[in-house]
Amino acid sequence: MLEIKNLHVKLEEEDKQILKGVDLTVEAGKVHAIMGPNGSGKSTLSYVLSGRDGYEVTEGSATLDGEDLLELEPEERAALGLFLAFQYPVEIPGVGNMTFLRTAVNAQRKVRGEEELSAADFLKLVRAKAKTLKIDADMLKRPVNVGFSGGEKKRNEILQMAMLEPKMCILDETDSGLDVDAMKLVADGVNALRDEGRGFLVITHYQRLLDHIKPDVVHIMANGRIVKTGGPELALEVEHNGYADILAEVN
């Protein structure tokens, strides 16, 4: 589904290489986790895949179901089914959460040539999905992420994901800033979306999120490259021994 080959990326403004040949394939129905120390390039990978400005791809490719992602605008990638749950969800003052969601859902439907959801259908759908994430009506009315707690912001990201029903979900440090209960809620939300047609790329620092979202494959990223790939046991190894051993082994 998601295929990344030999991806090299530098910052647009400075001569700094961040990704130095990433190879990664995420199959439909699978959950892949990427772990790694700070500054290893994990977040950059998620931004480059989703099309944020400021990066320059110098070599390599990234495709989703065979479509060249790197050629597309961010909104075109979104319509193809690529979703990024942000590490720091952005606040948009004055724009109701519901309005934002509805605009996004309908924008994607339009691009795909589907009919827009009516206000009533949309409302029904949002309410049902919000309920499972324990998002109350008040939070739906409030402006997007404004004054939300850390946990509320992350649950809101998962709500957007549930509404947009993407094919490929990238979760960028979704566990950061969450207490145990909030993490459980978020993980439940993600697990409910696990489906044989959908791939996940879970970027995280810590093993603990992976206790709740069980990965099929775990990658260790360091210095702009994936240095080790294994099963769920690899995450446990990191948890016990830290990254030092693995990095020493690779070097």
């Binding site: 909104e75 948009i92 004055g94």
Partner: peptide, 23 residues
């Protein structure tokens, strides 16, 4: 803000309109 909107599927003009209307 614009990137956040676009990642969710809105094109640039839609994103600007949304942010400005919020303002």
């Amino acid at each position: 803000q614009l990137f956040y909107c676009r990642q969710r599927g809105m094109d640039e003009e839609e994103a600007v309109a949304l942010v400005v209307n919020g303002f």
